[in-house]
Simulated scan of single mutants.
Amino acid sequence: MFSVKKSFFCVLKILPNISVRNFCTGHTALDKVNLMGRSLLTLRDFGSDEIKRLLWISRDLKHRIKHEGQYLPLLQGKSIAMIFEKRSTRTRMSTETGFALLGGHPCFLTSQDIHLGTNESTTDTARVLSGLTDLILARVYSHSTLEELQKDSSVPVINGLSDLYHPIQILADFLTLQEHYGCLSGLTVSWIGDGNNVLHSFMMTAAKLGVHLRVATPKGYEPDGGIVQEAKILSKQFGTQLFLTSNPMEAAHGSNVLVTDTWVSMGQEEEKVQRLKDFHGYQITMQTGAVASPDWTFLHCLPRKQEEVDDQVFYSPRSLVFLEAENRKWTIMGLMVALLTDYKPKMPMLKF
């Protein structure tokens, strides 16, 4: 069993029939947060209370639908255009099934199905889809495509993944950690791998939730310099630590959560041989965990390859990867509900 001491002291009051690890009482600024009509291209644009509100709504929907068996047609009569330039398992399935479960109609569109950027400008596509749907989610190669969509769309736009950010993944990661540890503030997350879009989203979010971030990337694979500077400002603002190194064991030292991702993203296949060489020594193993906190856990956004993390860690009780994958559904549902309705959670507020 992992230590729950940290979680216990995060709790303000014990509520009857509700786990003390996950909830707190009282009303805060979270009650007044309203995100209707907003777009989510990056969590850089969302404040601390806004991110917490999204996680609270997501956990509430999960509890009411999965555990209480309620049917909540919150998006009945609404539709979403799902644009996919890149293949996907979790993003497609979580969005498509989640929107349908809430009573809405999802429309899956690949680059072979629509004219995005080919025969029709992104501007025209945004205007057309705005007249036909209530929400647009786009999983694209270039972040600039999302910015163009948002500029000319009259409905909210969600980043389903771009070369710069992957915000919906990070919402699922932090919901998973909140469920497991009971609260987020004071946790240390260690990223060991590529300085990619997922790491960028961690860097724009962790400090706002009181989470310390330790990052190890090989030389030449560091995160974007501008994002690093913004993350340093956020860490100073929220009183958290941001530590960057090229030594994986140094990054893992004392950490509660070890995280990695693919070393070869879609579109980088020609770089595979060189990347595998450059990332030598970055595989997460039980030896990596030996220098982490006794309660350490493991996250990976999937799909996973063995060079990134060995089977002993990946399939161990410390691995939260399949709960993390499931939470992609609840967090995208929470996000879509928050952007399209004024939904108010019914369960007690989460403890952060």
Rank of each mutant, 00 (worst) to 15 (best):
M82Q: 12
M1I: 15
I83E: 02
S255N: 02
G220N: 00
E271Q: 09
T240Y: 08
Q178F: 04
F238H: 07
Y282G: 09
K66L: 02
A138E: 14
N256H: 11
A252I: 09
L54R: 00
N327P: 10
T331A: 07
Q76W: 08
V4C: 13
S255M: 03
L109K: 11
Y343M: 13
K305V: 12
A231T: 04
G239A: 11
L320W: 07
G98C: 10
Q287S: 08
G131Y: 09
T42N: 06
V215C: 00
V264Y: 01
I14Y: 10
C10W: 09
V11I: 05
N22L: 12
N34D: 15
W56G: 01
T176K: 07
E222R: 05
K344W: 07
R59H: 06
P348D: 14
R44E: 15
F174K: 04
F243E: 05
E271V: 00
G267Y: 02
K13M: 11
V337I: 02
Q169I: 00
L175M: 13
F8K: 15
M266N: 01
L109R: 12
M347N: 14
S235K: 03
H115W: 06
S185M: 09
L335E: 01
S162W: 08
M93F: 11
N196Q: 14
M93V: 14
P248N: 08
K78T: 14
P345N: 13
L171I: 00
A325E: 05
V215W: 00
F2S: 15
L135A: 04
C107H: 10
T341R: 06
V313I: 11
G334Y: 12
K236Y: 00
R304T: 06
S265C: 07
Q306H: 15
M36F: 10
D224M: 01
N17V: 11
V313K: 10
S111T: 10
V140H: 14
H253E: 05
T341S: 12
F99T: 14
G37K: 07
E96H: 14
N327Y: 11
S19Q: 07
I65S: 08
L175I: 11
V257C: 01
N256G: 04
N119Y: 13
A252D: 09
T133N: 12
G289H: 05
D49H: 08
T205H: 05
G69T: 08
L30W: 10
E147F: 09
L40G: 12
R214S: 02
L74G: 09
E96R: 13
Q76K: 14
F202G: 12
M266D: 02
L335W: 05
L72T: 10
Y221N: 04
M333N: 12
D45F: 09
R214G: 00
D194H: 06
S162L: 03
A138P: 11
H200F: 12
S111W: 02
P167R: 04
T341D: 11
V20P: 13
M82W: 04
Q112Y: 07
G193T: 10
K329N: 07
P223G: 03
P106A: 07
R127V: 03
L335P: 01
L177N: 10
F174W: 02
F202L: 15
L323M: 13
S293Y: 05
Q178I: 04
D194N: 10
R21E: 09
E269R: 00
T91V: 11
K208D: 04
T285Q: 04
L132R: 03
F238R: 01
G220L: 00
Y315A: 10
M347Q: 15
I65A: 04
